[in-house]
Amino acid sequence: MTVSALPAAESKRLSPRLRKLEDERWLALALLAPTAILLGLFIAYPFFEGVMLSLSSARVGQPGEFVGLKNFHKIWDDSIFRTTVWNTFWYTGVTTVFKLALGLWLAILLNRHFKGKAIIRAFILLPFIIPTVLSTFAWKWMFDPTFSVINWTLFQLGLITTRINWLGDPDLAMTSIIIINIWRGVPFFAITLLAGLQTISPELHEAAAIDGARPWQRFWHVTWPLLMPVTLVVVLFSVIQTFADFQLVYVMTGGGPANATHLFATYAYQLGIGTGLLAEGAAISLAMFPFLFVIVVVQLLYIRRVETR
């Protein structure tokens, strides 16, 4: 059989401008342009403006002037800011550990076959679907000093004799918002990890079972390492979101009592918008950047290492 050459792509008459797109360099530029413009307009420009703001003495109704790193010096000496840094790390660390552990546990349970599997999986997502502000209001009512349904239940069960002031005590307030964040975040972990679990061939578990691995060993030697890339991505997402969390704390405690539950975002908001110190607020927002940057870079490097394994 003779191999007939494919009919040479007839060079249709393209306008000279379109012809340029046949060159990959121009094509790449044309395809990248929309994204670059959007990112520049809505991310890079505000970020740059934020940096400039943090280096000024602007207040509400007062453009201010360039003052260098003065605002950063100021927040460095601010004890509330230091509490905020500690709070943010504690809040992010504790919630991430619990969300991962509970999410993984839930994912493994959901990965089995049982009746009504699809419905349960859909229900699990509810906390994630409800707008955070709404669900947080519901929680606020549950933790309310006077009407707390949790207190009522504990009281009826005879476990407590006096009211617990959930949101009035600094430590309890922090614990409360951590609980709500975990409640809200577990579904995302569970569903994503479940998707990851489903990509692991059941044959591998069977092979491991025949190889003599007990259930716990099968999890540790087969499931966990194969799930690692997905786990890392989910953790990365969650850390970024939790670190910059605002709504939950704002609705629940507003950063109180006595600034005990402020996170970067809420403190920046309170200082910048609440009291009108725009420049200082911007400085606090920006202070989040180096921490997040380091966390993200470390995790991305780790993800790359795991994926090329």
Binding site: E206, G212, H221
Partner: peptide, 20 residues
Amino acid sequence: VPPMDRDIAMVFQNYALYPH
């Protein structure tokens, strides 16, 4: 008797090698 205690070895259709 669970698979691990049957003293058998199995070769699977899709090999089932541990990818990591």
